[in-house]
């Protein structure tokens, strides 16, 4: 009897792992195809799509595609640009959006309802549809920097950063999380004479690790994958990000091996970033997701 249950248990385990692994296969096979193909010469890459060899590192395997890809485009420059723009935007976004969220949840001010409605409404404006008016605008905006007052933001990093710092979804995520924080903590701090800034910085933010991780990952993905906007605002190679760089590889005769190598290279930083934040991320969604 005991043996049967044990066998039963083992069988169920095997079934479970099999199901999990089969599903995992569905999610990962295009990525394996990408990685494996990046090591193959073009003719073999294309011929291999006819069989399982598409997923196996067999045949004429080499790093040639990577070498050629680096010759074709300044890949590190593009990655540096993307990571810089992404990192700065994510940091500023976390700061400004959490402050706004804090204000919407804990503070009581005139116009709050209207402001929050506007923020929710912006969620339904796809970026593609406002890009041109925005271009006309940023080309005339002033800036005070090292060279003093200048007009026009084109061909800079800031034009890729500033417009994307604040967004409705990030603010919304923070408000949802803050609503669940124990209110007594805040009230106690206020009674003890803390300023609102101190409440925000010393009490609320330290408790917000999970939501910060969530918002960071979502923002990271959006920013790292910017494409339409950089094409419009960066006329100089020195400011171009990775997805604009991808176009360097689509010539009349596309070298698919190089494309795969490039795709692999630009996907790696995101994967790494995600794996690092994964634990915090899943824990954080666990506490933000529940409030619809």
């Amino acid at each position: 009897m005991a043996n049967i249950t044990q066998d039963n248990h083992r069988l169920r385990l095997i079934v479970r792992y099999t199901v999990l692994s089969l599903i995992a296969l569905i999610f990962i096979f295009p990525l394996i195809f990408m990685l494996v193909s990046s090591f193959k010469p073009d003719y073999q890459l294309l011929a291999d799509t006819a069989s399982l060899r598409a997923f196996l590192p067999v045949g004429d395997i080499s790093l040639t595609n990577y070498e050629k890809a680096f010759e074709r485009a300044p890949i590190f420059l593009f990655m540096f640009n993307s990571l810089l723009v992404t990192a700065v935007t994510v940091l500023l976004s976390l700061f400004f959006c959490s402050m706004a969220g804090f204000s919407f949840v804990f503070l009581n001010w005139r116009g709050k309802q209207l402001a929050f409605s506007i923020i929710l409404a912006t969620l339904i404006v796809p970026f593609e549809t406002i890009a041109i008016p925005m271009l006309l605008m940023v080309s005339k905006l002033p800036w005070i920097g090292l060279e003093g007052l200048t007009w026009g933001w084109l061909n800079t990093y800031r034009v890729q950063i500033v417009p994307f710092i604040a967004d409705g979804l990030t603010i919304f995520l923070f408000t949802q999380y803050f609503k669940d924080l124990p209110r007594e903590l805040i009230e106690a701090a206020r009674v003890e004479g803390s300023s609102w800034w101190q409440v925000y910085w010393r009490i609320v933010m330290p408790l917000s690790g999970p939501v910060i991780a969530t918002a960071a990952i979502l923002k990271f993905l959006v920013m790292y994958n910017q494409y339409l906007w950089p094409i419009m605002v960066t006329q100089q190679e020195q400011y171009r990000p990775v997805l604009v760089g991808l176009q360097y590889f689509f010539q009349l005769n596309t070298a698919w091996g190089e494309v795969m190598a490039y795709l692999t290279l630009i996907t790696l930083p995101v994967l790494a970033f995600y794996l690092v934040l994964q634990r915090a991320f899943i824990a954080s969604i666990a506490s933000t997701g529940v409030k619809g």
Partner: peptide, 15 residues
Amino acid sequence: ESYNDSVIAAALAGN
């Protein structure tokens, strides 16, 4: 691939 878009954007922005 995106050359014409870049030029048009630059022209709109006076650049």
